[in-house]
Structures are given as C-alpha cells and as structure tokens.
Design a protein around this nucleic acid. Structure first.
Lengths: 211, 211
DNA sequence: TGCGGACCTTGAGTTAAATCAAGGGACGGG
DNA sequence: CCCGTCCCTTGATTTAACTCAAGGTCCGCA
C-alpha cells in the first residue's frame, strides 16, 4: 500500500536528515525534511495525523519543546524522538509528553523503520474514526450561532420551552432551529444527534447520580 | 485528604522497600510491600485503580513482565518503574507499556513522592467516571426484558410507533416501558438516557455519513 | 386456594414537538 | 437602489409523546 502521507524529518544536521530520508524512501516512504522545529511548524503541515521524526538537541526549539507545542495545539501526529546522548530522564520526559518512540543515535535502521511503520499504521487505524469526527465537526461548523446554542441545550436534555425561556425567544422559534439543526447535522433522531455531539466533544458527561 | 488506598511497593531488596515505605508513609501515604511481582499478583490486590512502584530487575518476573501481565489483565493501576542501571531502551519500553513514570536509582525523594502523588491524583480523577459507569450498569440491571428492548430501540433513535411495530405491541404499551426506563434509569430526558447508554457501552457509534 | 407482587398490556385525555406557511432585518452584488 | 440570500422570528395545525387510570397473566408464598 503506497501511503502518500510523507514522514516529516526534523534535524539541524544535514547528514542525519539525508541518511534518514534515504533509509525511509528506500522503503517507499515519502519524506519531507525540515531543518528546525520552527521551520516544521511554519510549514503548514496538517497536524491531525501523520508521523514526525525529530532530533532533541537543536538550536531554537528542542524536540521536547516541539512535543509540548504539538500537545498545546491539540496535534495528533505520532512523534518519534531521536537523541545523540542517551539520557533516561530525557527519554522518560519525551514519552510522558506523548512521544511514540525514543531512539538513541546511532540507531539501528531496522528499529527506526519499524518505529515509523508502527506510527503510520496507527495513523491509518485512527483514520476512520477521525473521518467520522471530522465529518461531524464539519457539519457543526455549518450551524448558525442560534442553531449551535439550541443544539447545546438539546443535548443537555432541555425541553423546547425551557430553551426558549433561556434564550428569550418564542418556543415556536426554538422549534425551527431544532429542525434546522437536525437537517444540517443530518440527524434522523434526537439520540443520533446526541451521539454526534458526544463524538465531537459537546455536552459534558454530567450524569446526575441521586441515589 | 487521607487516602486509604495503599501504594504497592515491589522490590526483592528489603532495604529499598523499607526506605521507600518510610518515605511514602512519612507523607501519610499507606504502603503495602511485596517481595516479588508474582507475590503482588497473588495478593489479590484490586487492579482497577491505585498505584504500584516496582523495580525492574527482580528474580522471576521482571518489572517489564509485570507491566505486560497487567496490560493483559486489563489492569488500570498506575505503575512507576524504578531501575538501578540507567538504560534508555528499557525506559522507553516501559513507558510504551504504559508505565506512569520511570526513575533511576538512586532517585530523588522529591521526584518519587511527586510521581506517586501524580498517580494517586490520576486515580482519584478516574474514580468518578468509574463510579458513574458502575451506577449506570447497576440501574441497567434493574430493567425488565421489555424495558431493556425498548431502551435499545430508543437510543437507536426509533420512534415509539416504530418500536411498537418491531416488538409487535401497542404504541401505548411502548410508552409505558419508556416511562419505566426513564424512571428506573433516573434519566430526566432522552439525551441524558442516551449518554448513560453510551457510557455503559450500549448503542454502537453508528452515525450515518451520507454526503 | 387465595393473596401480593412483578411484568405485560391497553384506552382516554393532556402536553410537547414536528409540519405547513410566511414576515422583517442585515448584507452584498448587480 | 433593488434583488437575492441568509438569519432570526412567529402563528396555526397536525402528529407524537407524556399523564392518569386500570385490566389480565404468571409466580411464589401464606
């Protein structure tokens, strides 16, 4: 399966980048090279999937800093970290920050290749669910402000007239938004709408427990 | 907050166990000691929560083996791994296997204490959701067969008359079951019921994507 | 055998929600 | 300036869902 998704290699050392690129491309994996973490971030690469291989010790932003930044941005790329000097605390910190793997230089070609393939496999696996979530988010973005408000109240379990009171409009009007929401979200029923909302992260898991 | 949940310390070295126990208990954290991974597993400790501190190099089952075994058993305890000889690949493997932290001996007391407290905090955070799920499952168990069928159809998004046709009964009757379900599940609204069902694993994430 | 209880079932009437039909304000392009 | 478009808004009517009230069956227990 020729995966068109390129692996991003980040290292300030030209020789390392080149040899790594050669290794990966020899296995049919396309590579995009970056000379620094900032250059990678500025390249406008989609951060919702894919695989990144980065050095730790780099001028400017370090590999660990990059991990933090990616986490802050809610990125879900798999990051493989490589380092020249073996340092356990550093490795542990990187893994805690969500690194997919941590390899010491000079690394075994087989190990690196395996790590990259594992990451690409994970990405492919997460693709379907992401596609669903993405589709839901896309529909969500098509809602107007009022429709969005009504949707939130709906999944919270409020009745139409309650929503109307909260928003200061006629119950009848709420009904229209409700219908619009159902149409735009392509939901055939209220439960389906709720499932979509939960998938997209709307509506907190606030299930009252009165025992 | 005196947490009655003990931290499990696993090490074949008596001196290490004792000093670690002293450190933790000095901070008001109760400790249960085990001389081997197998001894810990045989102790019948609940594996759905809590914190374990284990050595890697031990006769019989190693710390890494313990991590694998815990994963196989679907355990959700937080495991802090400590090791005598700093080894990056080992640390990375442990973290990949879900270790919460990885500390080299001799470790800093503050670091160990922080790691343990972080784990206990995570456990406490996961506690609420687990309690919720348990409560929902308990309510679910109180439903009669018909009520359960109606609930499943409901969260699937079917209308009352549709459910009535599917079950071969009067729409009116479905309404009664529906009311019973709402009462027994203590759900104030349909969306709330759907959230409960999703929490308990009912209703697949089958969101139609017709674009 | 009779009785209480749990489950399944239903009709009539009230309340909430979906359908049909449509007006007013904002905004950009012709 | 007028027109189309999008968003917000609403009334009247039909349909679905909820509340009140109640009969039938099956089973264990007194």
């Amino acid at each position: 399966m020729p995966d068109a998704l390129p692996v991003h290699v980040i290292d300030d050392d030209d020789a390392v980048r080149e040899s790594l690129a050669f290794l990966l491309e020899s296995s049919g994996i396309p590579v995009q090279q970056h000379t620094s973490a900032l250059a990678f971030l500025d390249a406008g690469v989609a951060l919702d999937r894919g695989c990144v291989v980065t050095d730790v010790r780099m001028p400017g932003m370090s590999g660990v800093d990059l991990l933090k930044e990616l986490n802050d941005r809610g990125a879900r790329v798999s990051v493989i970290v490589m380092t020249g000097h073996g340092d356990v605390p550093l490795a542990v910190e990187a893994m805690k920050l969500g690194a997919a793997d941590f390899l010491e230089k000079p690394f075994d070609d087989t190990a690196m290749l395996g790590a990259v393939k594992t990451c690409l496999g994970r990405t492919a696996a997460a693709e379907r669910e992401d596609g669903l979530r993405g589709e839901v988010v896309r529909r969500l973005a098509a809602l107007s402000q009022r429709e969005r408000q009504v949707l939130e109240c709906l999944v919270a379990g409020h009745a139409n007239k309650t929503i109307a009171y909260d928003l200061g409009i006629s119950p009848r009007t709420v009904e229209v938004y409700r219908a619009n929401v159902m149409t735009k979200m392509q939901a055939a029923s209220l439960p389906e709408l709720v499932r979509m909302a939960l998938l997209a992260g709307i509506a907190p898991g606030d299930i009252p427990v009165r025992q």
